[in-house]
Nucleic acid binder design. Structure first.
Length: 321
DNA sequence: AATCAGCTCAACCGCGAAAGG
DNA sequence: ACCTTTCGCGGTTGAGCTGAT
């Protein structure tokens, strides 16, 4: 038996909204609010539309603080970094970008940013082949490099970071090529994954990796030359890793909340390590948004920890915006 | 000028989660 | 504890636009 439709699709108008309908909806919401019931709203507002359609129209187009287009480089970075870390959770990503909607960010990624990332990846690929050509005996050698150089096609698959998205069936995963390509574009902070690794590993039925030695890439050029982490592992050390606080979290939480240096995330689940309670709370909140299940398990396992600050139980993400 | 292909983005669809009875 | 209703989300679609031929 199928799911009952939310409304009678034969009796409501569908397709593009007219200016008159926009004005009806806008003025109704302005005067009465949504009333917490989108299903009943179209009837009250005199609209022959499905409630879901009204909600979508309001959230994605009529809401007063909406921005369309004109994405900045900083917004690109945030989208790419978050996509690499949490996958296609557009509502969370959009919540970090004031005035952007999940639909808008999703469209922007699918139509523009993904291609941009792919182009960057190909550029990165070219340079990496050149690097290997110039240094044929360097595998396992220099700073920040481990293991033999793999063909780029293999590297791409194996270097795709095991994002929380791919570790959870509840989240639609990003394709390997996507993650790989924008990993080259805006190297996602592997520290995010390092932070989540112990918990995620438990979900996978495998042991958590040993606490990694934090290695800081001194430049993007060094990142570009970095090899893949071990296949199939949640890598503890990834030579290409830039510290998370260098990459994007300051943009999300504010620089002042982060302790200096790169050791911050390197040795396990970061919230447990933070001495500063405010910073701990902020980061736990962020983690709770991204890894709610993992956090629940973590609370249970470490409820006694002195420096713990439990985030509020509901509406976690709202306070981050 | 006409046609076609590719792109963009608003809107739709269906699912899972949350809320309420 | 169960069922129903509603919400919110992510994936997908397709009409309209734009540029190339």
């Amino acid at each position: 038996m199928g799911r009952a439709p939310c409304c009678d699709k034969t009796s409501v108008k569908r397709g593009p909204w007219s200016p008159e309908e926009d004005e009806l909806l806008r003025s109704y919401v302005h005067n009465h609010g949504t009333g917490g019931n989108w299903i009943a709203l179209p009837h009250k507002a005199g609209l022959n539309r499905c409630g879901k359609s009204c909600r979508l129209r309001w959230l994605n187009y009529l809401r007063p603080d909406i921005k369309h287009g004109g994405y900045t480089e900083q917004e690109d970075r945030i989208i790419c970094s978050l996509y690499n870390s949490i996958g296609s959770r557009w509502s969370i990503i959009a919540s970090k970008l004031p005035g952007r909607t999940d639909n808008d960010v999703k469209n922007y990624w699918n139509t523009k940013l993904k291609k941009k990332a792919t182009a960057m990846h190909q550029h990165h690929h070219h340079h990496q082949e050149y690097y290997h050509h110039q240094q044929p005996h360097s595998s396992g050698g220099g700073r920040g490099r481990r293991g033999a150089a793999a063909p780029r096609s293999q590297q791409c698959a194996s270097s795709m970071q095991p994002s929380p998205a791919s570790a959870s069936s509840a989240v639609t995963t990003a394709s390997a090529s996507d993650a790989c390509s924008f990993g080259a574009m805006y190297p996602s902070p592997p520290t995010t994954l390092q932070a989540a690794a112990p918990v995620l590993a438990r979900y996978d039925g495998t042991l958590p990796p040993a606490p990694p030695q934090q290695q800081q890439a001194s430049s993007l050029a060094e990142f570009s030359a970095a090899p893949a982490p071990p296949t199939g592992a949640i890598s503890g050390t990834w030579a290409g890793g830039l510290p998370l606080d260098d990459m994007f979290l300051p943009e999300l939480l504010g620089d002042s909340e982060f302790p200096p240096g790169g050791d911050f995330f390197g040795t396990g689940f970061a919230p447990l390590l933070l001495q500063d309670r405010a910073a701990s709370a902020s980061l736990q909140e962020l983690s709770a948004c991204y890894f709610p299940n993992a956090q629940a398990e973590m609370w249970a396992a470490a409820d006694h920890h002195v420096n713990y600050v439990k985030p509020p139980p509901a509406g976690l993400c709202h306070s981050l915006t």
